[in-house]
Design a binder for these strands. Structure first.
Lengths: 353, 353
DNA sequence: GTTTTTGTCAAAATCGTTTCCGGCCACACT
DNA sequence: AGTGTGGCCGGAAACGATTTTGACAAAAAC
């Protein structure tokens, strides 16, 4: 009874098994199945039938080893942030996956536990040959991930820029987001416009702030830095920021928020201070996450077609993998979606908190 | 000039390179680095130093091929849904990743574009040897994924049950969720309690409904199916459901919602009908997504420690990979979080919509 | 002094593909 | 008849690791 195999697990058929079944050599099977030309149409059909009936699927591992190509693209998400801003990533992955699978590439998502291990995750993926290209977001002005990958000549595409921009990226026009937010608020009569910004380590934060400054300048207003607060990417982020802002005496009538969650939690903060968001203080968010239309007041924000965004990324990745070395760069505009949270100025009834 | 390599790409060091640098054979390097005992302490140190200075990382592909173990666990998410219910998945992945990396396993996430390709994604992962174990959620009473994997004897863990439950799974106690929701509402004086359920194809939907029925029975109330509506997993889901419900004349004073997004969008629907959510109609959600505390009225819902959930899954996966074949099954309780959206009955001022 | 054991390592086989190289055959062209 | 020329296919060498086998000393046992 020894050696008796009681598992139901059937052995995965070899390329050798196919070769025997089709009565040809292993190399012919490989050529036939991979669409090479120098194989007789008749033979190819025989091989295909044999592979079909045996249920043969080539071992991805073996072919990766031999070809030195994994046919997979890795998307790195940075976990602690995604919990709150995830719809952004997921919409993007939607488009990216569509594009890549159409091109015969696998999309694989890996997570970086925290800030410091981002580079480790990337190094691991590259050095251990786990993918042919990388995609990641949340870029910083000085981004060691970009530096490292550029130095190694490894294909990658980012969502967002750094301060050099010698690589392929897709990004929103954050400057315009900032400028248009201010324009809208100025048109509504606001003069004291503050910012609840995303973390300053990210490039897009700076671009948005630059846009805000430009908008203010354009309107002949002075940028008052005491109206700005940097918000971490946590859940109570806007609430705490707005509390700090008002308790220290700064009294903006409008707030440009770095993302929707900041804006939404800022609403809570305002209410705690006895102010009515969307009446006493105008708010504009950014990203148009699904929930933005469902909070009260509904959130005025900047939207973007994330799936299309993902598809752009996919195209860039493909270009990279096909050997195109000149970096492609696209900056797409994010239109504003007007809802309730922005409101005319002048209604502000300042009460003591 | 031909053959000149102008890339900066440095060649990845071989195990052979390490062997030469350390002055030993390839096999010794392998044994030394993999912690085998029959290698001299002195030699091992020399090998480790050589590997270190060369920056040697064993090729994951090659070792996978030889060992026939990938050391990766695949989590399959079903994309069209995740866009709206994603915080649930991401919290879970957080814990799972923590567990697996601690055990030296890679976590990889793949997406299924739609319903039909879920099984294909799984077959692909398994048949092409891309992972050692699978994890997925959104199980159904008759789940062909589970059937297929069980038949093949491939290790997997699910989030949620099917109708057989002969495999390893982790799940919330959905029956208790339903029952406790009703208990709470009954305690608040409600008699006409309706349900906005998640799609009926999922097991957890049925379990929740069973709990609701049990709760009603317990309170001596009759279950009125005309107060129930099945909601798809889209963004306007609850809004449409509640509109349908009230327009066809059903007038529940309280709604048990299958998830938070259903509840939140149902609030919009109620408002459109001239009703005040949390005053005219009580609402209870499920999942406690981050935004639940930020909508108005804040949402009473059932919470769960997703990271802990993920860790449980990780442990089960590990057990599976270590050859334990008896299925492990855990059902964890989800405590209710009381906020504003549930309210006493009897305030209902029915207006014509 | 011979045999056995033990510790340490090298050689070679192996995993499942792909791809290079060369061979065979049929056919056409001198 | 001899020489190319394609078309088609098989053999064998990779790819980079792991694991088995066995060799060779030194130490221990008889």
């Amino acid at each position: 009874m020894k050696g008796f195999d009681n598992t139901l697990q059937t052995v995965r058929p070899d390329i050798r098994a196919v070769a025997i079944a089709a009565g040809v050599s292993v190399s012919t099977v490989s050529r036939a199945l991979n669409g090479y030309v120098d194989v007789n149409a008749e033979t190819r059909k025989r091989v295909e039938r044999a592979a079909e009936t045996l249920g043969y699927k080539p071992s991805h591992t073996a072919s990766t080893l031999r070809r030195n190509k994994t046919s997979t693209v890795t998307f790195m998400v940075s976990k602690p942030w995604t919990k709150y801003v995830d719809p952004y990533f997921l919409g993007l992955l939607d488009g990216l996956e569509l594009m890549l699978t159409a091109a015969g590439l696998d999309l694989q998502v890996v997570m970086a536990r925290d800030f410091d291990c981002e580079i480790d995750v990337i190094r691991n993926a590259v050095e251990r040959n786990r993918c042919d290209a990388l995609v990641f977001a949340r870029t910083r002005p000085e981004d060691e991930r970009i530096d490292w990958l550029e130095k190694r000549g490894f294909p990658f595409v980012t969502v967002g820029r750094n301060n050099r921009n010698t690589h392929s990226f897709v990004d929103r026009d954050q400057v315009k987001v900032g400028r248009n937010a201010v324009r809208r608020l100025v048109a509504l009569g606001h003069q004291r416009i503050g910012q609840l910004t995303t973390p300053l380590r990210y490039t897009y934060t700076h671009l948005t702030m630059q846009g805000v400054r430009e908008g203010l300048e354009e309107a002949g207003l002075l940028h008052d830095p005491s109206l700005d607060v940097e918000c971490p990417l946590s859940q109570k982020t806007g609430e705490e920021a707005v509390t700090e802002l008002f308790l220290r005496g700064a009294r903006p009538t409008a707030l440009v928020c770095g993302n929707d969650l900041i804006a939404i939690s800022a609403m809570d903060g305002l209410r705690r201070l006895g102010l009515v968001p969307g009446e006493d203080v105008a708010l504009i968010g950014c990203d148009d996450i699904p929930i933005a239309a469902h909070v009260r007041p509904t959130l005025t924000t900047f939207t973007i077609d994330l799936a299309a965004f993902g598809i752009r990324i996919g195209r860039m990745v493909q270009a990279r993998l096909q050997g195109h070395t000149t970096p492609q760069q696209e900056v797409v505009e994010a239109p504003i979606v007007l809802r309730q949270s922005d409101c005319p100025s002048g209604q502000t009834k300042v009460r003591t908190p």
